[in-house]
Simulated assay, not measured.
Amino acid sequence: MRVIVLGASGATGKQVVRQLMKRQINTRILIRESAVLPKDIQENPLVEIAKGNINELTNDEMNNLLRDSNAVISCLGHNMTLKGLFGQPRYLVFDAVKRISETVKNKPDSKVKLILMSTTGYTNTLSGETSSMGEKIILSLVNLCLPPHRDNVKAANYLITEVGTKYETVEWVIVRPDTLVNHDDESSYEVYKSPIRSPIFNAGKTSRINVSHFMAELVKEDELWKEWQYKTPVIYNKGYSENL
């Protein structure tokens, strides 16, 4: 088994790589030339490091990145700077997800699990999810004013409406944590089909290490994958799912 991790130098991406290392899973990561990785990831023999920007890869480079891979986990996101929020590329996540899906689609001999980290700010209307009027107003403003949110919504919509179950070689799960927090250790968490609390007015918390644990388990455990494939699970730290 080999897993590709995008955004591996980010706060959640690093945790994902460590979870895969813990499970002795071969991992190939793509990072920018300027990215800095912790020593434990750099020196781990299970980790293969490739450098470059995914949206600038040639077709040959993209095929090489995805060679012999069973899964792709995207933790891509925009830097919280003015340039990262409002500069190019505006659709970093969407462009990457689309290009990966189309590349894998043209490889009939290989099936790939694609796991996209999204947010509870994304409402899966096709599964029957609804938002209150107040949530709709605020999320509309966020979508209008913050390109990264618009990017996440566009990427999730693409998987649900364009890829769906039509691409025989692409299976996907969109993982939606609530407010991300940094904890050193894994803890109990709950996974739901849809949000059980308002992401705007009553947000919960989800530790990055728990998100990474869940995504690594999706890769490794076939039964868990079958449970959540083609769905948009929401993950909360257990205390926050109970204290409503």
Rank of each mutant, 00 (worst) to 15 (best):
K14V: 14
Q15C: 13
Q15M: 14
V16M: 11
V16Q: 03
V16G: 01
V17I: 11
V17C: 07
V17W: 02
L20N: 04
K22F: 07
K22V: 07
R23V: 10
R23A: 14
R23F: 09
I25K: 05
N26L: 11
N26D: 15
T27M: 10
T27A: 05
T27G: 04
I29T: 04
I29E: 01
L30Q: 04
I31D: 00
I31S: 03
R32S: 12
R32P: 08
R32K: 12
R32M: 09
R32C: 07
E33V: 13
A35Q: 07
V36D: 12
V36P: 00
V36R: 09
L37T: 09
D40M: 06
D40G: 04
I41N: 00
I41Q: 00
I41F: 02
I41C: 03
I41P: 01
Q42S: 13
Q42Y: 08
Q42T: 12
Q42D: 12
Q42I: 12
P45R: 03
L46F: 10
V47D: 03
E48Q: 11
I49R: 04
G52K: 03
G52D: 10
N53H: 11
I54H: 01
I54V: 15
I54P: 00
N55C: 08
N55Y: 04
E56V: 02
E56M: 12
L57W: 02
L57I: 06
T58S: 15
T58C: 08
M62K: 12
M62D: 05
N63Q: 14
N64Q: 13
L65Y: 03
L66P: 05
R67Q: 15
D68T: 02
D68M: 07
S69H: 07
N70T: 14
N70Q: 13
N70S: 15
N70A: 14
A71R: 02
I73V: 14
I73T: 02
I73A: 01
S74Y: 03
L76C: 08
L76T: 01
G77W: 00
N79R: 14
M80N: 13
T81D: 13
L82V: 10
L82T: 09
K83M: 11
K83H: 12
L85E: 13
G87E: 09
Q88I: 09
Q88R: 12
P89G: 09
P89V: 05
Y91N: 13
L92T: 03
F94M: 06
D95E: 13
D95P: 07
A96W: 00
A96C: 11
A96H: 00
K98T: 08
K98H: 13
R99H: 06
R99E: 12
S101W: 00
S101V: 06
E102L: 10
T103W: 02
V104I: 15
V104E: 05
V104T: 02
K105Q: 14
N106K: 14
K107A: 12
K107V: 14
K107G: 00
K107L: 11
P108M: 09
P108W: 05
P108Y: 05
D109T: 13
V112R: 02
